[in-house]
Every structure is written in structure tokens, then in C-alpha cells.
Design a protein around this nucleic acid. Structure first.
Lengths: 144, 144
DNA sequence: TGTTGACCTAAACCTAACTTTAGCTTTTAC
DNA sequence: GTAAAAGCTAAAGTTAGGTTTAGGTCAACA
């Protein structure tokens, strides 16, 4: 199947200007053009967009995504490098999950804190609540 | 306890230039200065740094963090707004966790894919493996 | 007292990842 | 065949969140 840039934009939610920018950065190395010079997206490009979104979400900059896609073009000789890249991502994203879990705990503590404060009409009450008077499931959340 | 900007930087790992930038943006509303004009960080500022890191990690821009800290200065009249802010963060960060979990699944699939390809010496083998031949715990990961 | 290390400001600079603009061409629909 | 919609490029502009630079001041110690 073939798609115009507008169709791809609608389907993926990515703005047309961004798709053109990705193309300019070399993220669609094998994309074709019509005789008139108009971009023709195929399922290959749709797949690449999926990879872009995955790598972007895990914090890989555009130029490194291009590097990976260049390795893909290169064939089997770059398999090891590509493997290593994803194992590194595995590490990084696992760490990101842990960090986000800690952030979530702090946020939950703050939600509890403000619920208590609002119920009491004032922050002073809960601000001075000693640690051991906090509910068990909140104590775990309390940070600095 | 009081700390110099250098001590705070060492303790938190945040560059001195960034601490000064945060100060300029109004994130330490009650920080004092020595007679000579030198910043004097107290435990209040250390606590604020914890809040900044939490909110930043959950995607809040600096100017909204300032807004929150201004609300804190305002006292009990802003309790509801502050509560709402953290409940909104709860939603956002929960969504972020889900997205990151999906990203992680895709990455795990790619790790498996490249391990197979390397073992076989070529990508072709695994590229054409039909879905039902994938191991159970990997099928869940397979995306577009 | 002097010098060295830590601190100060204002302003310029930086980077990534887009977005916008201006002017032009191609395609589609009637 | 023509008009509108969709596409094109190059280049400039934008934004957030800092960092760097230049030129000073402050504080502690020998």
C-alpha cells in the first residue's frame, strides 16, 4: 500500500511538517518520489515511523535514530551494533521506569498530604504530623 | 543548617549554573543573601529542590513549578489548586508509565529479534518467522 | 596584606526538535 | 481547462532549559 504525506499524518497523528523534517534528517532512506517529486510513503515507512516513536520515547536523539536506520540498510554486517543499541535501551528504559515509579510515589504522598490539609482546612495540621502517625501505605511514599 | 551554592551543587549533583538559573526564575522565593550578596541556601531550599526534581521528572515546565511555589507562599487559600495540580500529575505520570511499559515491550522484542538473528548469522531467518512460531513470552511484545 | 578559591551579574550563546513562512509546482475534481 | 487542494523547498524562526563568557566582588587563610 502507498500513502500520501497527508494520509500518513492523519493516520499517525504526526504533523506533516514533522514528517518532512524526519525525511530531511534521513529517517526514510528508501522512500520514493512520484515523477512530480511528491513523497510516496509505503508500509516500510510506516514501520520506520513505529521504530522512530519507540526510540524517541526511550530518549534516543534523531541523529542516533538515523544511525540505526543506516545500520539497517547496511544489512547483516551491522547486526551486532543494532543488538547492542537495543540492549543499551533496555537498561536505560528500565532505569527510567524506576525513576518514574519514585516520582509517582512522591506525587501520591503529595495527593494524600493535600487531601488531609483540605479536610482540616489548613496545612499546619498535616505539616507537623510526625512520620509514625502517617498511614502505613503512605509512609513508604514519604521523601525528603 | 545553611549551605553555600557550591555545597548544594555537590550534594544534589545539580550544576551551580543551574541553581543560579532556578533562582533567577524565582524557584527559591524565600532564599536569603549574606551581607555581601552571596546566596544562603537553607533546608527550605533543599526541600524545594526535591519538589523541583519531582515535578520536572513528571514533565512540568519551570514556569508551572514557579506557579506551584508561589501558591505555597500564598498559604492555605491555595490548597485546592495545589491539590488539583498533584492529582493532574498523578494522571499524567500514570499514563507515562503505561507508555514507557509499551516502549519497553517493543525494546525487549527487538533484543530477542537481534539475538535470534545473530545466532543464525542473518536477519532473514527471523524476519520471516511467522508469528505463531515466536515464543509465547515474545508474542506479547510484537508490534507493527 | 595579599592571594587564592568561591561567589556574583548580565548578557550572549547553545541545542534539539520542530514550526512557520514565502513562493512555487503538482494533482484532483469538475 | 481551470481552480482549489495538496504537495514541494529553502531558510528563518521558535522554545525550553540550560551553559558559557567576561568582568568583576567576597571571604578565608598564611
Amino acid at each position: 500500500m502507498y500513502y500520501s504525506i497527508g494520509e500518513v499524518s492523519r493516520r499517525t497523528g504526526i504533523p506533516i511538517s514533522t514528517l518532512r523534517y524526519y525525511d530531511k534528517e534521513g529517517l526514510f532512506p528508501s522512500m520514493e518520489r512520484s515523477n512530480g517529486g511528491i513523497r510516496v510513503f509505503s508500509d516500510t515507512e510506516i514501520e520506520i515511523i513505529g521504530i522512530i516513536e519507540c526510540l524517541k520515547a526511550s530518549g534516543v536523539p534523531i541523529k542516533d535514530i538515523k544511525q540505526y536506520l543506516d545500520w539497517c540498510e547496511e544489512g547483516d554486517s551491522s547486526l551486532q551494533k543494532r543488538r547492542d543499541m537495543f540492549y543499551e535501551r533496555l537498561q536505560v528504559v528500565t532505569k527510567q521506569m524506576e525513576d518514574l515509579q519514585n516520582t509517582l510515589s512522591t506525587i501520591k504522598y503529595k495527593c494524600w498530604y493535600y487531601d488531609m490539609a483540605l479536610a482540616a482546612g489548613s496545612e499546619n495540621v498535616v505539616k507537623n504530623t510526625p512520620m509514625e502517625d502517617l498511614p502505613e501505605e503512605i509512609q513508604r511514599y514519604k521523601h525528603g
